[in-house]
Design a protein around this nucleic acid. Structure first.
Lengths: 146, 146
DNA sequence: GATTATTATTAGAATAATTCTTGATCTCAT
DNA sequence: ATGAGATCAAGAATTATTCTAATAATAATC
């Protein structure tokens, strides 16, 4: 654990949003003015491989990093871009709602959500109801089903 | 629906794997030798926005495309790179195993899995049992939990 | 059927996130 | 101190994807 790794890690621990590598870079520069973006990438990589940090990808947007190691999903707001941690409901095993083929070895499971965060749902206004999404067979109805 | 869009779409309908844009490009060139990669990207985009096709991202790997519109998760084999469709178990609402904050509007839910496909689990051998992954509170135990 | 307007296609340049390369620097056991 | 090994910095390189501008196809109107 080098100085730069520690500072990068501390930055993530302090952050509640889910910063990108550049976000972290800008933040970390205050403490370590000489650090380079490449080093931040290296540190984030090392921390990720060491299991101290999770890398969060959605679509092809820049990766975000998160020091919350509890199992959780990520909700990405399409309007303000914020990323929220969404805990899994206690007691419900997520993997049991999947028909995994026999014989696979499952190492990692990732759940990403898209939509509007509470604030943006309100801001977007309209007569939509603010409770739950429309119910489809399993999760939600994709408007444009064939 | 232009000629190139149709050919791109047909290619996806025929494919059982989950081709990347370049994969599609190479395949489509047989029918439309003059087509450009940019057009393939455009077509895939149009089809995705039109809801005929799903774009599948995992980590920072190239996007893959899939014409299976049924709700399903994607299993990515870390060894051979294959991507398998994993249907959701009938009757179990996935979104109900998430503690979504009040007031969010959920538009899209994506589940990605990583591990070894059946063939690669066998090939990787070792004394591992081939049935189910180790059980953790919710989905699976990340070896490196803090 | 000709003419205009719209939209899609192409080829290649541009972009942006990330990774690689190289030499300099640090750490630590000896 | 000294040397071995890892890490860092800077910038170049890579790669998936998007943009741009010009051409071509399609559709709509006369």
């Amino acid at each position: 654990m080098t100085r730069q790794r520690r500072v990068v890690f501390d930055t993530l621990l302090r952050s509640t949003d889910h910063p990108t590598a550049s976000d972290v870079f800008m933040e970390v520069k205050e403490a370590l003015p000489g650090i380079s973006l490449a080093t931040v990438y290296n540190c984030l990589d090392t921390l990720t491989h060491g299991g101290m940090v999770k890398q969060v990808c959605m679509d092809r947007e820049p990766s975000r990093y998160c020091a919350n190691l509890r199992d959780h999903a990520h909700f990405h707001c399409s309007r303000c871009g914020k990323v929220l941690d969404v805990p899994f409901s206690a007691g419900k095993a997520l993997s049991s709602s999947l028909d995994l083929p026999e014989g696979v070895r499952l190492d990692r499971l990732e759940v990403s959500l898209r939509g509007l965060c509470p604030a943006c749902t309100v801001a977007a206004g309209s007569g939509t109801d603010f409770s739950r999404p429309p119910q489809a067979p399993n999760l939600l109805s994709e408007a444009h089903q064939s």
